[in-house]
Amino acid sequence: MKIRVITDSAADLPQPCRPEITVLPMAVTFGEEQFLDGVDLAHRQFYEKLIEGDALPTTSQINPTQFEEAFRRAVDEGEDVVAVVLSSKLSGTCQSARIAAEEFPGRVFVVDSENATIGQQILVRRALDLLDQGLDAAAIAGELEREKKDIRLVALLDTLEYLKRGGRISPSVALVGGLLSVKPVIAVEHGEVVMLGKARGSKNGSNLLVQEIRKTNGVDFDRPYLLGYTGLEDSLLQKYIADSAALWAEHTNALPIGTIGGTIGTHVGPGAVAVAFFQRSEP
Rank of each mutant, 00 (worst) to 15 (best):
E33K: 00
V75N: 06
G38A: 06
L226F: 06
N115Y: 01
M195P: 04
D37I: 07
E48G: 15
Q34K: 15
V82C: 04
L130A: 06
F35H: 02
S281C: 14
P256Q: 01
I3C: 06
C94I: 10
T230C: 02
L144S: 04
A10V: 09
T266K: 08
G53A: 11
D37S: 05
V5M: 01
G31C: 04
V188S: 04
G178P: 02
F35C: 02
F30S: 10
D40Y: 07
G92S: 15
G269L: 03
I21G: 01
A27W: 13
Q121N: 10
E161V: 09
E79M: 08
P25F: 11
T252E: 15
W248G: 03
L236P: 08
I257P: 05
T230F: 01
T65M: 10
G262L: 10
S235M: 12
G269P: 03
A100F: 08
E69P: 14
S172Y: 06
S87L: 11
P64K: 06
L232A: 10
F35P: 05
L24K: 10
A70W: 04
K164M: 09
N207D: 14
V110R: 02
H267S: 08
L131T: 02
S170C: 12
E143M: 07
Y240R: 09
L227V: 04
V173C: 14
R98E: 15
V173I: 14
R44F: 13
V154D: 12
V275W: 00
L157T: 00
F71M: 00
E250K: 14
I99W: 00
F109V: 06
L135M: 13
R200A: 00
E48Q: 15
T159K: 04
G134N: 06
G258V: 11
P171Y: 02
A155V: 11
F221G: 05
F46T: 00
P256I: 01
V275M: 01
K215T: 10
Q121I: 05
V219Q: 03
G38H: 02
T65C: 07
L175F: 11
S88L: 12
K239D: 13
A97N: 04
K203M: 02
E250N: 14
E79H: 08
R280E: 13
A249S: 15
S172A: 09
G177C: 01
I140P: 05
F221W: 15
D37H: 12
D158N: 05
G191S: 08
Q34E: 15
R223E: 09
L13I: 11
P57F: 03
L226I: 07
Q15R: 09
R223A: 11
V194G: 06
T93C: 02
D136Q: 01
K2T: 14
A138Q: 15
Q120S: 09
N217E: 06
A100G: 08
G178M: 05
T216E: 14
V173D: 03
Q95I: 12
T266L: 06
D243A: 15
T259W: 03
T259S: 15
A245D: 10
Y47M: 03
K148G: 00
L36D: 14
D243P: 13
Q45R: 12
K164R: 13
R73K: 14
D220I: 05
I99P: 10
A138Y: 11
G218W: 02
N63C: 13
A141E: 01
T252G: 00
I213G: 11
Q34G: 14
L24P: 11
A141F: 04
R223M: 15
V28I: 13
W248Q: 07
V111Y: 14
